[in-house]
């Protein structure tokens, strides 16, 4: 479907157990997204499969370890591997998170093993812009930066995450990856838990032309009083679908991805979730173009 000359692209996250499915079934999604680090090897079956997938599908590279907000520099070895993969796969999108991952232990660089939140301050903004500039220039590619779910808050934050991302994009030319489930998780963990309101407040701050991708995912809802864990192990929740509708109303035909990382379902379930995303987006876009 073309809206304002933009085709609505809907994809799914591709994980190892679905390699055979994607290569042996008819094309049912527009693109796939993989975690860059899973293909950092110099060769082997996984990279060969991804190259075969690339012949049939657009591929988005989603990195999870770069830690653009880290005060410590991103090691060059990491960037070299990412660049090599980028040159092999020629992705149509490249994304990372607005978080930190690198630190020091006993004087040695260490990786946190997780996406850790940062305080939304001007100091962190400047640091993240510096890293985004460096990475974009090194890769020769535009980055798309994703909002993160968090389990701790920095009291020192005085910008909202949406303002923080907007400012990064304005200063560096990067784009925004809007993860609606992450907004939902943070809404439940740190705000009133009115997901619709949180999504609306968030997306209204973002400049329309800067949002380049949307992520949709599901997670287990908490028992009362506990923090929600963003486990990407469930179908997309009704609240997130409603948030998606709002996002499409505001941003139009933005490439949309179904993320599912744990307790993976059958490939057909992912394809059905992608179909649902397409149906919702098309309904909104039809209504707007009518």
């Amino acid at each position: 479907m073309l809206v304002n000359n933009k085709k609505l692209l809907v994809g799914v996250g591709l994980r190892h157990p679905h390699f055979t499915d994607i290569l042996t079934t008819p094309k049912q999604v527009d693109f796939v997204e993989v975690h860059s680090e899973n293909f950092f090897g110099q060769g082997g079956a996984a990279l060969s499969v991804l190259s075969q997938v690339r012949e049939k599908y657009l591929v988005s590279l989603h990195s999870t370890s770069m830690g653009l907000g880290s005060m410590h520099d991103i090691p060059m070895a990491y960037l070299e591997r990412l660049k090599s993969l980028t040159q092999t796969i020629d992705p149509f999108l490249m994304s990372e998170h607005a978080c930190f991952t690198w630190g020091k232990q006993h004087g040695q660089t260490m990786h946190s093993g997780d996406l850790l939140p940062i305080a939304h301050t001007h100091l962190n903004l400047a640091r993240m812009c510096e890293q985004v500039d460096k990475v974009q220039s090194f890769l020769g590619r535009e980055l798309i930066i994703e909002n993160v779910s968090a389990y701790v808050k920095f009291d020192g934050s005085y910008l909202s995450e949406a303002e923080f991302l907007t400012e990064i994009c304005q200063r560096t030319g990067a784009k925004i990856l809007l993860d609606i489930n992450n907004i939902a998780v943070n809404s439940l963990n740190f705000e009133e838990g009115n997901i619709q309101q949180s999504v609306a407040d968030y997306i209204n701050v973002l400049p329309v032309e800067r949002v380049a991708q949307i992520h949709l995912a599901g997670c287990q809802m908490p028992t009362l009083g506990q923090l929600v864990i963003d486990d990407h192990a469930r179908p997309v929740s009704d609240e997130v679908w409603q948030g998606y509708q709002l996002a499409i109303e505001r941003f139009g035909a933005v490439p949309t991805l179904i993320e599912w990382d744990n307790d993976l379902p059958q490939w057909s379930v992912l394809v059905d979730e992608a179909r649902k995303a397409r149906d919702i987006a098309q309904a909104v876009l039809h209504k707007e173009s009518a």
């Binding site: 680090e37 370890s65 991103i74 090691p75 990491y78 690198w102 260490m110 990786h111």
Partner: peptide, 10 residues
């Protein structure tokens, strides 16, 4: 021996 490379596989 904490991870140092940003890729659990390494």
């Amino acid at each position: 021996s904490p991870p140092t490379q940003g890729d659990w596989a390494q």
